[in-house]
Every structure is written in structure tokens, then in C-alpha cells.
Design a protein around this nucleic acid. Structure first.
Lengths: 240, 240, 240, 240
DNA sequence: AATGAATGAGACTTCATTCAT
DNA sequence: GATGAATGAAGTCTCATTCAT
């Protein structure tokens, strides 16, 4: 019964179509995040987007297609943000750092996005043909992670990274780890703070720090350094 | 509401109940892994367990309770395995290493368990009161990760770990990271190999290696005090 | 909202189940005939049978299964009637005649049944595995048409049927023809009378007469005057 | 681009309309046969014909009209074929035989057509005003089956057919029977061969043979009066 | 004349759960 | 304690058709 035309389409047909598509996708994304992908029904997308169910089916063949479209959308935007954050970064280590920092920023500023991707992974990744995922990623991120691989090679070459690293292995291990950590933190959301007693991004940045330390070439000239807080260590054995 | 647990002779009532419960839980777990938690219906649990739906409701109040029971079950077993693997490990670093190795082994040998927990996180964690999760964890793993925290303190104290680590922060960061990586790898399953070209656990073990390198105290060319076990860790040993 | 329990089930569970099944089937059959198989919706079966849609699905897996059950039902009853009408018929020709007469009677007295089977043929026969149809028929009519084939053999042997008949071919040709004619007449229903100006069964009985004349052995001894119908076949001409 | 209507030169408007109409009808017919009339949706006709649904509605008021148009089309063509096959057939029996042979040929060469008509009968005949069907037939086949009736009269007159036949009754009975058998065989398609173990048209031709035997005058051993068999040919060509 | 967009009504089916035995 | 039967609510999706351009 909601037969209200909210906005007159002033533009051409394709423009109108794109606008409708957006409406559906935006509504879907919001709902997916609020309730979880599996807890959202087409009826909710209908009433939330203002597009009739039968109309939605002229834009997407079924609910799963909406999920995929949302994922593509979300990843594309994230990729654009990543691209931007890497611009004008000169050397290898700086770029790697920038990339990881970017992921931390995403966790803070776009936790919805990260959370959604986490859910998508958990719910869809295994039950869908791998090709589709790979295709999606290659469309969005054409160079793939090769750029990152290049960075590691550069880093090894210029001595800023450990020379015993296998670029391919390292790249995939690190990326997977960082994504895993990021998504887990996003999934748990505020629970992390209750459980871990730390703000989400603090944990994540510490992860990054440790990983970078692990990647970094060992200090060439062993210098000496006073310890910061040796006493504090054994103070509190158990907090909780 | 279930009976008190007493002696439980094989043919007794409580024993029967326990057997039924197990049947339901086992069937549910298998299905959850095969199809994903949200894609399993009570009817399927019925036909797969051989227990009638109405009977199931005499063991579990609703479907969610089954999910929680399965999770508790699964975590309990995992925890027992962990406990066992940590036994008879002498010092801090060895224990940390053992713990991380344990998680790698889990990934390989109990990927179903890991995957299930990943899915649970993504789908349930946010929609349920945090307390319940925390309660669950504390029941299963009393002491929680504090043991791990203790290890870090020890490591800092004995100089095998970086002294600029904040035990609490580090502990949580590392644990979250490792769990995140582990679950992500388990979720993606064989897709990782297609996409990354590396066996799942190879990636995971490289992650562990890098993390440990990052945690390790920077190599101070053995100065006036020989640490407990400087030789073992730093020797770049490529766990696998 | 029709939440009215029409009859208390006084008997046992199986009895009750059978009664429900009947209710569904009877309602379905009536509707199928009234509106045509394809024009009947589950909702109609629901409201007509008084059984909730979700309940129906505990008796039949889907709509097609209902159709098949109805067909089986209908054929079974028809088969029983046929059996009965053939009882106590002594020789071959008499039995053949009785069988064809039976089909004429069916057309008159059970046109609904015939019509339904005609529709089933037209709509389902081609789109379903042949085995299923054959299985159905063999369940209902175990001897199959072999009995009829035997009759023809007998008839050829005793000289009442043309000796140039191939029992198998003849049997199938005649049966198909008679069924085809019967179902077509039932399908067209009263339209036949409007179009052909003849009562339905009159046409059908004329068909039978001609077929029997065609099957009959040519007059054995060309006697002095070829009467219209000197032999015994003609005795019962069935004008009706 | 719209031109004036003229005499239908190839590029003219009416010609265009006719082409579109054909496209729709051809696509519909193919689909109707493949899937069954009731299982074909307008959307399928659209995608199969390449004509947009809204455009289709400028050629046909609704889906039923398409069905009727297809039937008309199909019958017209069949009728033309029939006409042709009857040409140059001299006498009554020969014409009757030719007609029945024609139906056998149709069954073999145009089983799609026959099958479609069978389906139409089963699904539409009863639910539509009889007049429409009759009108349709009279348009296509003016004179209707009266030609056939004439043949029978001729046959009776010249002694080649049984003289106890009632021309009207016989005509309708035989036509109905033959059509019924033909359509049933076409509907069952290859199932007949599986079930009956005989090629479809073999059965049908046997049916024809038996019917003709039944119609034929009993073999009077050519006695004193050779009927006007040779001469009668030109006697009565058509009764009406 | 042609068509892209829209849509209300309704199709079939599934589900978690309760009730009565 | 176990279970067969029942079910309301909701699920996703399809359909023939109309509207506005």
C-alpha cells in the first residue's frame, strides 16, 4: 500500500535505473549491517528502500545477487580509499606502513564495511564458487596484491626488511593475518572493549606494530638501550 | 532444569538423556559445518539425528540454544586439547610458541571446529549479549588468557621478549590476531590455496614466525647477561 | 482464520492420517476437475479441504505429488470397477466386448475421472519420467494389458477374430485408440453434442462397434446370401 | 519510421506488423510444445521472440489470445496440408483412406502440431465457450467434416462401406476416434514406444486398418450383381 | 509504434515451534 | 518422556499486465 512516488525521475532511463539500484543497495547494506545478512528479508529491503519486491527482482535476480552487489560495491569503495591513502608514499617500508595504517583507519572509520565483509566471508565464502570471489577481487583490485609483493621485494633489497623472507609467502601471510585480525575486531565490535579492556583500534595498531617489527631487518649495529619499564611487568598477574 | 549429575549408570535415565543430547549436538554440528549455521533447519537436525523435533525441544529450548550448546561443546574440547598441548612446557617462550603451534595444529587437524567458531563469531557475536559469550569462555577456560599474559610478563622479565611491550595490550593484540588469522584461513578453506597458492597452514605458520620475531627482544649481541634461552628463538629457525 | 475443527478424530493416529489424506485428495480432485489441474492453487486446496497449507506439506511433498496421488487414486478405483465388470465373463470375445463396454460406461458414469486422466496425460505425461507412469500403472493394474492380449490370442485361436491380427500390435492399437477416443470425448464434454449433434456415448459406442467389426473374422463360409450380419457377433449390436 | 499503410510492400507498415506477429507466434508455439502451454510465461515468449512484453500487448490482448492465435495458425496449416493430400483422389474409399493416411503422416511428420492441439483440447476446450472453437474450425475448414460425411454416403451407396452405417454418426465417431488416437499417441510421444514396444505410427496405422475393416462392407463373394463400383466414381462428389 | 519500468496479487514452500496424546 | 500432528507467519520469487515515455 505504500504507493508514494518519492522523487520524480528527472533524468534519462539509465540514470533512473542507476538511482534505483543505489536505493536498493544502500537499503540492503544498512540492513545487512544492522541485523546480519541472514536476518534480513526481501520484505525488509522492500520497505526500507521503498522499491516494490517485484521491482527489485528486475534489478537483481535474487537475494544472493544483492549480497554480491553490495559486497562489490563496498569493496570497490574501500579499494578506492586504499588507493588514495597510498598515493605519494615514497619508499617500500613507508608504503607498507601506510597500507597497514590504512587498514587500521578503516577499522575505526568504516567498521561497518569491515564487519560486513567479515560476515560475508563467514557466510558466503565457503559456499560459493571460488572463481566468483576471485573474479570480483580482480575486477576491483586489478593489480591484486602484487603491488604489496613488490613492496616486500623492495624492502628486502634495500635492507629494511629481513632478508630471510619469502616475498610471496610473507605477503600472503601478512595480508591474511591483518585482514583476519581486522575483521575479527570489527565483528566483535564493542565486545572487544568489554572483554579485552582495550579500544579496538589500539589492539589493531599494536598488532601492526608487532608485525612490522617482525618484518623489519634486525638492527644492523647493536646499540644499547635502557629499558623502559622493567618493574611493571610482574606487578599484576591476573586482572580478571 | 536437567537432572543432577550423579553416578550415571549406563542404562539409567540420565545416561539416556545424555546420549540423546549428544546425538542432537553431533548431528547439529555436522550440519552447521556442512551448510552454515543459518542454513540448517530443525527439520534437518531431526532427520540427521533421528530425534523427533518435539523431542529435541525437551532438550533445548530453541534452535539458538542448540547453537550455543554446540559452541560450548566445541570450545570445551578445543580447550582440553590446548591444555594438553601445553603440559610439560618449561619456560615462557616455549609455552608461547607451543600455544601458537597448537593453534596451527588446530587449523590443520580441526579445521571444522575453527571454521564453526569463525561462523559463530560472524553471525552471533554481535547479536547476543556480550556477557553470555564471556560467561561461556570463563566456564570453559577459567583463567582465560591470563595464563598467556603471565607468559608475556615472564618473557619480558627474562629478556626474551621486547621490553617495550605492554603485557595486557600485547596479549590481547596477539591473541586476537592469531585467532583472526586462524579463523579466516579456516573459513576460506581450500580457497586460500587457489587464491594464494600456498597451503593454509604454511601461511599460518609464517604468520606465527613473524609475530614471534616481532615479539622477541631485539638481538643484543649477547652481552653481559646470557638469557635463559637466547639460542633457540632467534636462530631463525623457520618453523616449517 | 478458519480455525474450526470439523470432526474429532476418534480413531488411532494412522486412521486419522488416512482420513486427512483423503480430505486433501478429495478436495484436490474436485478442484482439478472443476478448474483444470493447472488452474488450482494450493491455497484453494487448503480452503476447500480445511487443511492448512503447512499441514498439507506433511502429507505431500509438493503440488505435483498431490496430482500423482490423485491420479493413482482415480486409476485404482477405475481399475477396481473394470475388474468387477469383467467378472464372470466366459469367452474371449465376450470379455473384449465387456471391456469396451466398460469403457463406454465409464465415459457416461465417470466422465470426471476420464476427463481428469485426459488432462493428466496432456499436461504431465510428456514432462515426467516414463518410469513413473509405468510403475504407477503396473502397481494398479498388475497384469497390465496382458490379459487383453490373451483375449485376442484366444479370439484368433477360436476363429472369432481375424487371423491376420498381430496380437501385440492389435492389443496396443485398440487400447490406445479406445482410450484416446474416450478421453477426447470426455475432454470435450458437452461440446461434442453441440458440435457433432450426437450424445457423447452414442459416438463412443459406435466407435466400439466399428472396431469390433474390424476385428471380427470375415464371415467364414460365404453362404448364399450375404446378410448384414449373419454370424454371432452381430447379435448384440448395442445401439443405445 | 512509421509508414503509411498501403498494399504491403516488403518495407511497409503492415508488412512489419505481420512480421512481428509471426515472430511472437513462432516463439510461442515452440515454447508451448517444449514446456507445455501452461508452463510458458510471457517473459519467456519475450526473451524467445525478442519482442518486448509491452509490445506484445499491442498485438495480442492477453496470453490466451496468443494461444488462440497459435491454434488458429497451426490448424490452418494442417488444414492446408490436408487439402493438398486429398487432391486428385478419385473415389470415396480412396479419399477416406487418404484422409486417414494423412493423419498418420501428420502424426509422424508434424507431431509437434498434433501434440499442441492435444494439449489445447485438454486444457482449454472445456473452459472456453464452445462457439469460439466452432467458429475457429469453421473459419479454417469451411464445410467442416461434411466432406467426410459425403464420402461415407458415397461409400454406402457404392457398396464399398457397410450399408448399416448412419453417415452422420459414423462420420463423427470415426473422426473423433481417429483424432483421439492420434493425439494420444502424440501426447505420449516416445513413451509409447517404451511402454508399448511399438513405433508410434505403426500403432496408428493398425488402428486405421482395423477401422477401415470395420467400415468396409462385409465381403460378399462377388455374386450376381457387381455393384456400380467402377462407375460410381463420378456420381456424387460432395454432398455439401 | 515501441519500450523500459513498475507492480499487486498471489504462487509454492519452509520454518520453528506448540499441542495433545 | 516421547512423538505425531498441526500450524501461523513468513520466506522468496513469478506472473500477466499497465503506465509513462
Amino acid at each position: 500500500m505504500p504507493r508514494k512516488k518519492t522523487a520524480k525521475p528527472p533524468g534519462s532511463y539509465p540514470a533512473h535505473r542507476e538511482r534505483q539500484r543505489r536505493r536498493i543497495l544502500d537499503a540492503a547494506w544498512t540492513l545487512f549491517d544492522e541485523r546480519g545478512i541472514d536476518r534480513v528479508s526481501m520484505a525488509e529491503i522492500t520497505s526500507s528502500s521503498g522499491v516494490q519486491p517485484s521491482t527489485i527482482y528486475q534489478y537483481f535476480a535474487n537475494k544472493d545477487e544483492i549480497v554480491w552487489a553490495v559486497i562489490a560495491d563496498v569493496m570497490q569503495k574501500a579499494s578506492a580509499r586504499a588507493q588514495q591513502s597510498l598515493e605519494a608514499t615514497p619508499n617500500a617500508l613507508a608504503r607498507i606502513t601506510a597500507l597497514l595504517d590504512f587498514m587500521a583507519d578503516e577499522l575505526v572509520n568504516n567498521s561497518v564495511t569491515v564487519r560486513f565483509m567479515a560476515q560475508f566471508d563467514a557466510m558466503y565464502a565457503r559456499h560459493w564458487p571460488a572463481e566468483r570471489l576471485i573474479t570480483l577481487e580482480s575486477q576491483i583490485n586489478p593489480g591484486g596484491f602484487n603491488a604489496f609483493r613488490g613492496l616486500i621485494c623492495d624492502g628486502i633489497a634495500d635492507g629494511s626488511l629481513r632478508h630471510d623472507l619469502d616475498p610471496d609467502l610473507t605477503m600472503h601471510a601478512v595480508i591474511n593475518t591483518v585482514i583476519g585480525a581486522q575483521r575479527r575486531l570489527a565483528s566483535l565490535g564493542s565486545k572487544v572493549e568489554q572483554e579485552y579492556g582495550q579500544p579496538v583500534d589500539r589492539l589493531f595498531r599494536e598488532t601492526i606494530r608487532i608485525l612490522l617489527l617482525g618484518l623489519r631487518a634486525p638492527e644492523p649495529p647493536p646499540r644499547r638501550r635502557p629499558r623502559k619499564k622493567p618493574s611493571k611487568v610482574q606487578s599484576r598477574k591476573r586482572t580478571r
